[in-house]
Write a protein that binds this DNA or RNA. Structure first.
Lengths: 204, 204
DNA sequence: GTCTATATTAGGATAGAC
DNA sequence: GTCTATCCTAATATAGAC
């Protein structure tokens, strides 16, 4: 699962499947999936197209693998949040933390997932899983409103989408190894979503 | 600028440039710019590829036009906000309202803009203008923190990105004519960003 | 404003040798 | 695990008639 760190290239490259997948997903994110040709990927790896097809069945199978990875991780984080907390507000906090964590840990795969538009059966299936995830989170937000823990003058679906709008936008600029840690980011998202930025909370 | 409403197709379609651009940008958003071929666009319009090239110079010139439209509108909204308010917090509120308004009014063009990855000179120029916009807004957020109107325990750049993460995520689900109005959306974004969702503000 | 026909290049993918 | 050579399709774009 960690391929970039072990190139071990002497003379001929000599890649394994994971290395190919890692570079492919990076390239898909840099240029867009559709704008990236198999020739581009081969060039980036320094091998021919034929060599690539020794490792993967098709361009789409690379996409499939990455999307499954991202979705399974996000679904797992949601499951964990539900199991670890009995109150909806606790579950919401935890699912935001979990999603930010997954996003940080599997940034390339999640980035790819968030850009899928439904151009193939594989993409449509991924969108369907995303929708199911969103619905489960929306239900948690609605529960938190019923509990009295969250303001209910904003529609639960709208609130959920705006909160995850913040979370998902992290793929646009968060880079691992940068100055901001994932934990701090999750704190900031929850801080804005729950407390807001107006003044300092302990001020006055 | 409003083409979809006047098809007036009798026998042969008979399109003008604006109609072609409108349909093109819609299709680019549905399928992705790179995944959309000129043949797809021609099929959608019910004409041949050659007929299309009578209206536009190239596929990229369509993109160029749409991106310019979106960027000019956003920059205009920012200029307006700065001119209409002297305090940074007022400017921030207004630029969020303005950006949501532009997003709602020019949803296709803004959606296209937000998906650009820098695959060509045109795309890179658009990204550069976006960055300049972001920097100007970040400066406003920083000023609002200095004014004491905004909490300063979150980095201004991070706060700006998260707020605009919410705003920009509207392209993923907001559709004109739906149940939620743009004004209400801007209120919700500002409400979350400034006051937060924790409890009801006037509660207890 | 649209058509048929076509030039040209790039795309995904395979066969079979090393 | 990689190579050369190749197939076939689809891509952007143009020429010139109606």
């Amino acid at each position: 699962m960690d391929a970039t760190q072990t190139p071990a290239r002497r003379g001929r490259p000599g890649y394994d499947r994971d290395q190919v997948l890692t570079v492919a997903v990076q390239l898909f994110n840099d240029q867009g999936y559709d704008a990236t040709s198999v020739a581009d990927l081969a060039a980036k790896l320094g091998v021919t197209k034929s060599a690539l097809y020794h490792h993967v069945d098709s361009k789409e199978s690379i996409l499939q693998t990455a999307l499954d990875d991202a979705l399974s991780s996000l679904e797992g984080a949601l499951d964990d949040a539900v199991h670890e907390h009995d109150d909806a507000i606790g579950r919401l906090r935890q699912v935001v933390r979990g999603a930010v964590g997954v996003l940080a840990q599997k940034l390339p795969q999640v980035t790819l997932l968030l850009r899928v538009r439904g151009n193939s059966e594989i993409e449509r299936a991924a969108l369907e899983r995303r929708r199911a995830f969103d619905h489960r989170v929306t239900a948690i937000v609605r529960d938190a409103q019923s509990e009295g823990a969250l303001a209910d003058d904003i529609d639960a679906a709208v609130a959920t989408r705006l909160i995850f709008g913040m979370v998902n936008s992290l793929t646009e600029w968060y880079r691992p190894g940068g100055p901001v840690t994932p934990d701090r980011l999750a704190d900031d998202v929850l801080r804005i979503a729950l407390d807001g930025l107006d003044r300092v909370p302990e001020g006055a």
